[in-house]
Each structure stands twice: as structure tokens, then as C-alpha cells.
């Protein structure tokens, strides 16, 4: 690591946008790790397609965060020159790929939320966020369909695939509560009509998740204790390793382009 971290002035709008950008980048990067390694060529392409959708969303959000901040930062600096504690993504999206079931359950939990979230954000009073939402909504709708179909087949498949899917649900469940959390900085944006209150999406999210999980002959954990911290830079041990790979080129050859 030879390049210093940037500093970001996290006004409520900058922080809000950065959090969503980080979700998309980190999940997109995780999915890109499957490229060339997926269980079959068809899914290699499918996961890479989803990764590219998410990285596209991240780019637009970083661009807007940089504009809202109004300083010297740009999308590349925001992605490549912040350290772990400066990242604001959900803990869910940084969790390792694990096996195919873990990757798909993680995707399913997130996409079921993102689908509702972006559709609601199309009504944001912030025209840039509303435009990003209109583009992202179609992508997320497909990600949800893709992961739902897989959850159903993994759960209602073989003994082995059922056990792995159930294991993934049990393992990742505690990271789902963070998607619906709101802090003071977001409360102001919600009141101003710029952000939507994620708590209003919770019932519909639960309904979607429960219906797919039931069809898959799987079960949701009864445990409702939820892990949080990602939105404030308190991450699991996995994110640092991810960032060291994601950022290695820019840290070694600052400003390099091709």
C-alpha cells in the first residue's frame, strides 16, 4: 500500500449515496470472483452479468457521490483509495462466496430488497437518484428472478443441495436486518423525500423471501438477532482481504489507466 487514503466529507447525501455505491461495488466484486470458476458455463455467464450490472450501478452512484461532495474525489478515488473503515456497505454483501448455495442465498436476500428499494426510489425528489433507480430497477428485478429460481431448485433438489441451501440461509440470516436500519443522517433525507424509509419495505421483503423459501422446502431461522456495523465502517474480517485485491493495482500504480 503506497498511496494514502482519501478523506471524504460525509454530508448526509454523500454518505447515503456512498453506502449504496459500496453495496453494489462489493457485491459486484464478490460475484466477479466466480468468473471462470462457476459450476457450469451458463452460470459463469449469469453471475458475471449480474456483477457487471452491479458495478455499473456503483459507478453511477460513486459519480454522484463525488459530485455531491464537490471536492477532488471522483468515482475511481472513492472505490480505490478508501480503506476498510471508510467503506459503508452492508455486512451481507461482503460475506465470502462460499459454495454456490451461499452465493445464491446472499444474492437472493439482497436482490429481494434491491428490487423493492429501487422501485420505491424512482419516486425520490432527487432527480439523479431517481434516474439511477429507474435503470437499476430492471436489473434488480432480473437478479431477483434468477436467484429465486435457484433457491427453489437448490432447496427442492437433492439432499446435498437442500442441506447446503439451508446452511447458507442459517448463516446469512443475521446480516439481513441491516438492510432495514435507519440512522439520524438518513432520517433527514427520508423526511425530505430524497430517500425512502426501508422499514416500509420490510413486510413485502419478508413476504417474497418467505414464499420462495417455503416453495424451496427450506425454512427461515427463528432467531431474530441481527448483526450490524457495515454502514458505520465496522466490517467483518473478510472486507479487508477483498479490498486488498480490488485496490492492488491503483495502490501500486497510482492513477494508472488503460
Amino acid at each position: 500500500m503506497t498511496v494514502a487514503n482519501i478523506q471524504v466529507s460525509e454530508t448526509p447525501l454523500v454518505l447515503y449515496t456512498l453506502r449504496r455505491a459500496d453495496d453494489a461495488l462489493i457485491l459486484g466484486h464478490r460475484l466477479s470472483e466466480w468468473c471462470g470458476h462457476a459450476p457450469m458455463l451458463e452460470e459463469d455467464m449469469a453471475l458475471s452479468n449480474i456483477a457487471l450490472d452491479l458495478i455499473g450501478q456503483a459507478r453511477e452512484l460513486y459519480g454522484y457521490a463525488a459530485k455531491a461532495e464537490g471536492g477532488d474525489n471522483d468515482e475511481d478515488k472513492l472505490a480505490y483509495l478508501r480503506d476498510v473503515r471508510q467503506y459503508r456497505n452492508l455486512l451481507l454483501v461482503e460475506q465470502p462466496n462460499g459454495d454456490f448455495a451461499q452465493t445464491l442465498v446472499r444474492q437472493f436476500f439482497y436482490s429481494a430488497f434491491a428490487d423493492l428499494y429501487w422501485r420505491a426510489m424512482m419516486n425520490s425528489r432527487d432527480t439523479t437518484l431517481a434516474a439511477i433507480a429507474a435503470k437499476s430497477e430492471k436489473e434488480s428485478a432480473y437478479h431477483l428472478r434468477h436467484s429465486s429460481e435457484w433457491i427453489i431448485r437448490l432447496g427442492d433438489g437433492t439432499e446435498e443441495s437442500h442441506a447446503r441451501a439451508q446452511g447458507a440461509i442459517d448463516q446469512l440470516w443475521a446480516f439481513t436486518g441491516e438492510m432495514f436500519a435507519v440512522d439520524d443522517s438518513e432520517r433527514g433525507l427520508i423526511d425530505a423525500g430524497i430517500a425512502i424509509d426501508p422499514a416500509t419495505l420490510r413486510d413485502r421483503w419478508m413476504k417474497t423471501v418467505a414464499s420462495v423459501v417455503t416453495e424451496a422446502t427450506l425454512a427461515l431461522p427463528q432467531n431474530n438477532w441481527m448483526q450490524q456495523g457495515g454502514r458505520f465502517g465496522r466490517h467483518s474480517e473478510h472486507l479487508g482481504h477483498l479490498l486488498s485485491e480490488l485496490q492492488s493495482m491503483q495502490r501500486t500504480f497510482p492513477g494508472q489507466t488503460w
Partner: peptide, 20 residues
């Protein structure tokens, strides 16, 4: 052509492989 477990999955895979 492609491999898929059933028609729904085949349609999804076709979208991902052949309409990018």
C-alpha cells in the same frame, strides 16, 4: 445450445448467454 435443468432455467441461461 446450452445446458439447463428445466425450461425456466434454460430461458434464463439463454437470456444471459445469447442476448448480452
Amino acid at each position: 445450445s446450452l445446458h439447463a435443468s428445466d425450461a425456466t432455467m434454460a430461458l434464463q441461461a439463454a437470456r444471459d448467454i445469447y442476448t448480452r
